[in-house]
């Protein structure tokens, strides 16, 4: 379990980092928190000839308010989602996601953006980012562009980033006032990647669901939104019949995979159960929010 030899570069600024990426292109891999990258290097699954370590880029460590949004730099550790006041106030769903995620030691090192870019299909943050309508800022020597996380993934561990691009920030839109939320999952052990999981956001106008976003993880090649399920719910009053209908829609529409931990069939069953649990919890929170 030793990596193949690689050139190790440690830029101090975004400018330096993008210059390295321009020079080495697809030979290079970016090292952020390293919680997925280091094992992949050690197991020789990833064999980059150049490793660009962005951990020393001071300008990329921040959580700050943007226009109706919370912007998080790409070296910011996941652990901060659990103790940051701005996150708690504007995007509390992120703190809930953190509770489902890995162990504290991993969260202390792993980065928010790193998890989204790595795009493990069973990871929590990509799905939550999609539900929130988050956007990534990708920069290169050619300039910067904004990519909605919902449009970022292209299948199993693949994304649309160009080899010379560095994601410098993720931008989470603030949740609507009174919006309820939920992140639920089934994993074999505490802190494991999920066998299946569902994130949802629900806001009411009176008795009717006015705003709803549902995204799932562990149930396909990448985290994704469940638009059809959202359509069924929008404008409706809540009822257990409606939730069951949504759950069976989700169960039949997702395309999970088989592995040694769970079959696709089992994951579909979990998808139905988790959809219901997530909606119940989000609605409960929305109602509490409205009452307070």
């Amino acid at each position: 379990m030793k990596p193949v030899a690689f050139k190790y570069l440690k830029p101090a600024t975004v400018e330096e980092a993008t210059a390295f990426l321009a020079e080495y292109g697809s030979e290079a891999k970016i090292l952020a928190g390293g919680q997925s990258m280091m094992p992949m290097l050690s197991m020789r699954i990833a064999r980059p000839s150049v490793l660009v370590d962005i951990n020393e880029i001071a300008e990329l460590t921040y959580i700050r308010a943007a226009d109706d949004a919370v912007a998080i730099g790409s070296v910011t550790r996941q652990r901060r989602l659990g103790d940051d006041d701005l996150v708690a106030e504007q995007v509390p769903v992120l703190a809930s996601a953190l509770k489902c995620m890995s162990h504290p030691q991993i969260q202390n090192r792993g980065t928010v953006v790193g998890s989204i870019c790595h795009g493990d299909p069973a990871a929590e943050l990509p799905a939550v980012a999609i539900a929130l309508g988050a956007e990534l800022t990708a920069c290169s020597q050619a300039g910067t562009r904004t990519i909605p996380v919902a449009e970022f993934y292209r299948g199993y561990y693949r994304n649309i980033l160009e080899p010379d691009e560095l994601v410098s920030e993720v931008n989470f839109p603030a949740m609507l006032p009174g919006c309820g939320w939920s992140v639920v999952e089934i994993s074999r052990r505490h802190g494991d990647l999920a066998l299946a999981g569902v994130a949802s956001l629900v806001a009411f106008a009176g008795e009717e669901i006015d705003h709803v976003r549902i995204a799932c993880f562990g149930l396909g090649k990448a985290a994704h939104r469940l638009v059809d399920a959202e359509s069924l719910l929008k404008g409706q009053r809540t009822s257990s019949e409606l939730f069951q209908e949504v759950a069976s829609l989700v169960s039949s529409s997702v395309k999970p995979m088989d592995d040694s931990h769970a079959s696709a069939e089992y994951r579909r069953a979990l998808a139905a159960e988790l959809t219901q649990r997530s909606l119940f919890e989000a609605i409960e929170r929305a109602k509490q929010g409205a009452a307070s």
Binding site: H103, R188, R189, H190, G191, D192, L193, S260, H261
Partner: peptide
């Protein structure tokens, strides 16, 4: 990740 040792949580 595949051979699951129980942790203090389990």
């Amino acid at each position: 990740a595949d051979y699951l040792m129980p942790s203090i949580y389990e």
